[in-house]
Nucleic acid binder design. Structure first.
Lengths: 230, 230
DNA sequence: CATCGATCTTAGGCGTACCTAATACTTAGG
DNA sequence: CCTAAGTATTAGGTACGCCTAAGATCGATG
């Protein structure tokens, strides 16, 4: 007698697919293309198709998937994705605040641990931290029920003329950039004067009232998210 | 062109096999039988044979394995096993001391997380805890280089006549027993008077100078490790 | 010292998550 | 509106860690 199993919805891989779909879909929750997922996850496009079919066939389905038209998170998928994001951001905050990690190291550790902590761990570090609303990069931490203020920040690369803006958050995916920005003083809440823009997409900026001008590479500028200009 | 890979020595499974061999081999580092491993790990004996062959074939080999004669840890295997035990015990201590986990819940969480924490995490929680020598169950925490005082405690079940003994440590593998013992006051360092022994292997004991007598099931008595009698 | 029962190993399979190569679909340009 | 380029899917294969069933080995006992 063979027991037929549902595709296991509790794996690290599944978590990562769901998180990537959430991130790439953006606040508008657009359909996400297989290729974009493949690139973000560092796997072959064929692997993505394969996984999406499994996720769509699960009980409950975690995504809505139509061949050639990209993928959307289902309610269950979104719930799980936000749960993982919540884990990630609570862990980052915990590593930074309680264990005194350097800011540029929190992401990698959180990326590993987010899949394995229990509800109890989640609850206990949240309490220890005093129920924080933000992680150290300036990202909102989803509530236990998955609710989270809508994100409306834009990358600094979208600022095309001289302007004064306020840093909302920093993308944590590249440790070297996180470290550079931290050292430069470009942190959530900082005021930034955009002095000019290079052909390559880089920016010249000053911080606060300082006259010193820093040049940011296109990648660094893209990692800086600012409050939307009026 | 096919790239031939070494068996991956970094997996959760491998960790668990090495830990089990370390535990079952005891302080004398006896050869461990496949069946014993299978039972402890909850897998089929065939799976054990399979894994042992891979572990022995790795570079470096993690075990010394001869068909039908059981298995021993190699130096590299012992190093890794002690590293995982160190992780486990540091995490347990951390959960108990810093996150105020109930004692009976630390084991399960540590069992999951021990495979995924980085060197940095290990180092930081150790520092936060003030370089503890013991976990909350009374087990020694191996040093970073793998050194650890030799264990010489014996289970309470080995005490066959009336005697007064001191609790060394508590096995953490069964949460219900851990909770029971904690509630009863049977904790590392406690003095125990063994009043009598039942045919089934259970014990009647009193704690400290109290006259109250508790009956311990064979399983509970086996989970209590005491300092060796003189 | 032969045999039986326990223990261990081999053989053959499965599910997951990945891969490459070949094929199919979509869509933008001519 | 048709086709080429780009994107996506199918087909077939791998490594890992597990399984069951069948066969080999060991060792205690008659």
């Amino acid at each position: 007698m063979t027991v037929r199993r549902q595709p296991n919805p509790n794996s690290e891989s599944v978590d990562n697919y769901l998180k990537a779909i959430l991130a790439l879909g953006g606040p508008e929750e657009n359909r996400v293309a297989s290729n974009a997922l493949a690139q973000r996850l560092g796997v072959a496009p064929a692997s993505v198709t394969n996984m999406l079919q499994k996720l769509a066939a699960g009980l409950p389905p975690l995504v809505e998937y139509e061949r050639h038209r990209g993928v959307l998170l289902s309610d269950a998928g979104k719930r799980r994705a936000l749960e993982v994001v919540r884990h990630h951001r609570l862990i980052e905050t915990f590593l930074y605040e309680v264990l005194n990690y350097p800011i540029e190291e929190v992401h990698e550790e959180a990326e590993r641990l987010e899949h394995f902590i229990s509800e109890r761990f989640e609850e206990r570090i949240e309490a220890k931290l005093g129920y924080p609303k933000m992680d150290p990069h300036g990202h909102c931490i989803p509530a236990m029920d998955g609710r989270m203020p809508k994100e409306n920040s834009v990358p600094l690369t979208h600022v095309v003329r001289k302007a004064t803006v306020v840093v909302d958050s920093i993308s944590d995916r590249d440790a070297a950039i996180v470290k550079l920005l931290r050292t430069t003083g470009i942190v959530p809440g900082a005021q930034l004067r955009v002095r000019g823009r290079h052909a390559d997409g880089g920016h010249d900026v000053s911080i606060g009232s300082s006259v010193k001008v820093y040049h940011l590479s296109p990648e660094a500028a893209d990692a800086v998210k600012i409050h939307p200009p009026p």
